[in-house]
Design a protein around this nucleic acid. Structure first.
Lengths: 235, 235
DNA sequence: CCCAATCTTTGCGATGGCGCAAAGAGAAAT
DNA sequence: ATTTCTCTTTGCGCCATCGCAAAGATTGGG
């Protein structure tokens, strides 16, 4: 799939971080950016690469993850269309990416040179505040997830992951909210193993909270699942 | 202890986030800020309070922590003198603090109204970049700690906490690097229990890596401890 | 100087979650 | 339609860590 400059501009207007960007700034970004397509499991960038570009997802789903020296993978965040990622380069020219960005499905992102993005930022304080708002939101999310990891049991953590994903990426269907993720993906997000995720989902299915399938999960009782996420349901 | 305005200005010059602040800006901040002293275990602010002020620690040690509904405490970060905390208010006027700030010992912080801080920020893009740098550094640290929490065993996590603290707050003594923290404090930072911390420290003491005491830890073999933190030592 | 309060240590039993292994199920390719 | 590949399920044994309980150590106050 290719994108015309009109389509790119339209997409940029849906980006939260650019809420206060002027028409001229949006046009400039659209002109400076280059769409890049990446197939499933491909990477936009790797951890510790020099952060020379800022990315705005136009299409698809991308996960930000870290890989430990032992090869274990930890998911930090899932990016949906119209979200900015890899923005660290816009802040410090010499920075490296703290995580890698891997496509969960065929995806397209607008790639903007960090220096250009930084120049546009510098000229408009409102944009910088928007970017800082994004950062503080993310800090808050990371802190919450850290606390959850420390204090909560696996079932609750998996429930939180599922509820969070449902809000961001869920597709409404007659049967409920559908999510397309493998057990492995969910495990990496909840900080557990695919075995445990499988067991927990089986339990939920028996209790009628969800329907499961290969790389698929349909939440039929969202409210009940949220109670599990909040810990108000004895396991 | 009280602070003269000359002392406050001198302190502000040592603040990383204000590296690019002009003399006039430093003076303005010193004038707008009010030092507030808090005794041990007292709070500068609580989680979910409206973030009406930005804090700069002048003296002491402060922990940022979250408290779960069940009363369990999780430490997110320890603040050393000349560090900014509670800065979220400067970004969004309507924000609330995502954590509480509790003094680990008698501490003094300069308290600056968020709106004033924000006004000074807006006028100087270089300052905003410094603040964003602080945020991206913190995001990186949180991500690392999250990954460690997910993938590493307790002993390794405790070692990381101790090594990190040694760098930030350690005092050099003839015997080694001294840290003043209770087992409970360390447990909250490593995401474990005081019992486990106690057992691990005893083990290290037997191996000659550290000396322990009541609310005290002296690292006699920093290099060996760093190896434990890196996982290169079989437990 | 002693007592009370606080912090630390350690034995012991309990258990939540891990991870192998092998079988089952679904999707895609030939 | 059959094969092949990938993803999922589940039984089973294991063990790292938890958390109580009780004793020991250290500090500060009166």
């Amino acid at each position: 799939m290719t994108f015309s400059s009109a389509e790119i501009e339209a997409a940029l207007r849906r980006v939260d971080v650019l809420r206060h960007a002027t028409a001229a700034e949006v046009r400039a970004l659209a002109r400076l950016g280059l769409p890049r397509a990446v197939e499933e499991d491909g990477f936009f960038f790797f951890q510790d690469d020099p952060a020379e570009q800022v990315f705005i997802l136009l299409q698809g789903r991308v996960k930000l993850c870290q890989i430990t020296p032992e090869g274990q993978q930890v998911n930090l965040r899932t990016i949906a269309p119209y979200q900015v990622f890899g923005a660290v380069g816009a802040v410090r020219p010499d920075a490296t990416y703290p995580a890698c960005a891997q496509a969960l499905e065929e995806s397209v992102a607008l790639v903007i040179p960090s220096a250009d993005f930084q120049r546009i930022l510098s000229a408009n304080p409102a944009l910088m505040f928007d970017l800082m708002t994004m950062m503080t939101d993310y800090i808050r999310e990371m802190q919450d997830r850290y606390r959850e990891m420390v204090t909560e049991q696996v079932e609750q953590r998996i429930a939180r992951v599922v509820v969070r994903l449902a809000g961001q990426l869920g597709r409404r269907t007659p049967a409920g909210i559908e999510l397309i993720f493998s057990r492995q993906d969910l495990a990496e997000m909840a900080g557990t193993t695919l075995y445990t995720v499988s067991r927990v989902l089986s339990g939920w299915e028996k209790r009628g909270l969800v329907l499961t399938g290969r790389e698929r999960l349909v939440i039929t009782q969202p409210h009940a699942l949220m109670q599990v996420a909040e810990g108000s349901v004895p396991t």
